[in-house]
């Protein structure tokens, strides 16, 4: 079941000049939300922002009926969204997409930049299911690192930064945690990074789940704009994905 309902903004936390976290209160009891699912936000009052904006769910607080969204400012829609005030309402279509398939006894989560957004809630779900996880976050510098405390409370956190201001200096692929044995890898981030991690998983002969980000008009399967080429033809990122087994994707 998907819903189209208003949420109330309870927090708008600035992380960097282009990154912010919204915490939204649902006035009713939240339905079940899977890690890796996303929402479509209505951004009103700008003729250049016509369609909703798909944003992945960063975290869910089921007791408080709150969800968090990590948003990067990439255009007019997300820029306008960054100015939203506490107490304002936002209309969301949710929860959308398939979510992560939970497998294995020990798994690795790899996130790059703001693409790491859905991994926090994934780490929370894994902990609830008593699956051991390590999480490796790659970002530009220490200032672009978000939700560090939360990650640490749920998983073993490893960090790689481009400038070495936190953790390893370099790319996630060169981090030594990559050499350890895992049952599966969950990866979200820039496409070149997901391709590199997917290649690594292939060598290790373990499944690698990636989260794709494609332009979409609706987000719930009807516009057919967000297709991705898979081994069995074009599939809609919004309903068959956004989480795909990387071995099913043509370009990976």
């Amino acid at each position: 079941m998907r819903y189209c309902k208003d949420f109330i903004v309870v927090e708008n936390e600035t992380i960097t000049s282009t990154l912010f976290i919204l915490k939204l209160q649902y006035p009713e009891t939240l339905p079940e939300i899977k890690a890796g699912q996303f929402v479509e936000i209505l951004v009103e009052g700008n003729k250049d922002v016509f369609l909703r904006r798909p944003i992945s769910i960063h975290d869910v607080d089921i007791e408080r009926n709150q969800i968090s969204l990590l948003v990067q400012i990439v255009g007019k829609g997300t820029d306008q969204l960054s100015n939203i005030k506490i107490g304002d309402t936002l209309n969301l279509i949710f929860p959308l997409g398939n979510g992560f398939t939970i497998v294995g006894k020990r798994v690795l989560l790899v996130g790059g930049g703001c693409g790491a957004a859905p991994l926090l809630y994934l780490a929370r779900v894994l902990k609830q299911r008593q699956i051991k996880s390590d999480i490796l976050i790659g970002c530009k510098d220490v200032n672009h690192l978000f939700s560090k405390k939360e990650y640490e409370s749920l998983s073993n956190l490893h960090i790689a930064t481009e400038d070495g201001s936190c953790g390893l200096k370099g790319l996630v692929t060169s981090h030594k945690i990559m050499e350890e044995d895992f049952d599966a890898i969950y990866c979200c981030g820039p496409t070149p990074m997901m391709k590199a991690i997917s290649k690594h998983a292939k060598q290790k002969n373990i499944p690698c789940y990636v989260s794709l980000e494609h332009k979409m008009a609706c987000g719930f399967g009807v516009c057919l704009c967000c297709v991705v080429e898979t081994n069995i033809g074009n599939k809609r990122t919004c309903v068959t994905g956004p989480i795909f087994l990387s071995s099913d994707l043509k370009d990976f």
Binding site: F50, K215, A217, L224, C225, V227, G233, N234
Partner: peptide, 23 residues
């Protein structure tokens, strides 16, 4: 029909362009 290649959609002022191609 598999339709056209991605990207198939572009947002424009008060509208959108699509090129789904009858998938």
């Amino acid at each position: 029909r598999e339709g056209n290649a991605y990207p198939r959609m572009a947002e424009t002022s008060s509208g959108m362009l699509n090129a789904v191609g009858l998938q």
